[in-house]
Simulated assay, not measured.
Amino acid sequence: MAQFKPGERVEVNSNDRGFRGSWYAGTVVRREAKNTNRYVVEYDQLYADESGEKLLQETLDWVQLRPPPPPPEKKVQFKVEDEVEAFYSDGWWEGAIIAEHSGGKFAVFLRGFDEQIVLEEKDLRLPVQWVKGKWEPRFEQVQREKEVS
């Protein structure tokens, strides 16, 4: 079971309808005293009110949390058919690159939205998995690196 400390940066996964496959940035506020595998997290960009003045806080199970992924060790050369996480609508969403545009932009199909959008390279990252306390590349990424080598 993961243990996160107050003030620690995390990403939150939601299984709520319309949010599957997304990760949102936040900070651990505290661990619950009665149920120690639950944490109160304050989101960076999701708000509790319509005015956008009060950040949303939620109590979440530890399995919904992970540390933010580390930056890539080397510059990623994205290409068509790459599986990616795309920053859109205040969170990171699962998707796939379906076309390359000029100026470092890519058309990405976002599964959670069932639509295509064009994003800049800075808004894309290769997906990784948090497994047993360490980051591991997804299968597609391992296969891609073998092809490049």
Rank of each mutant, 00 (worst) to 15 (best):
M1E: 07
M1H: 11
M1R: 12
M1D: 07
A2N: 15
F4E: 02
K5S: 11
P6I: 00
E8L: 08
R9V: 03
E11D: 10
V12I: 12
S14D: 08
D16P: 00
D16G: 09
R20Q: 14
W23S: 08
W23T: 05
Y24F: 15
A25E: 08
E32R: 13
A33W: 12
K34D: 13
K34T: 14
N35E: 10
N37G: 12
R38P: 01
Y39N: 02
V41N: 04
E42A: 03
D44V: 03
Y47L: 05
D49E: 01
S51G: 00
S51I: 00
L55V: 11
L55N: 12
Q57P: 00
L60K: 08
W62F: 15
Q64D: 14
R66W: 09
P67F: 06
P70C: 02
P71C: 02
E73T: 04
K75Q: 07
V84C: 01
E85I: 02
F87Y: 15
W92V: 03
W92L: 02
W92D: 00
I97W: 10
I98T: 15
E100I: 05
E100A: 05
H101C: 08
H101F: 06
S102K: 07
V108K: 03
V108T: 12
V108N: 02
F109W: 14
L110M: 07
R111K: 08
G112S: 12
D114E: 05
D114W: 03
Q116S: 05
R125T: 09
Q129N: 02
W130G: 09
W130Q: 07
K132Y: 14
G133D: 07
K134W: 15
K134V: 14
W135I: 05
F139A: 10
R144L: 09
E145Q: 14
K146E: 11
E147R: 09
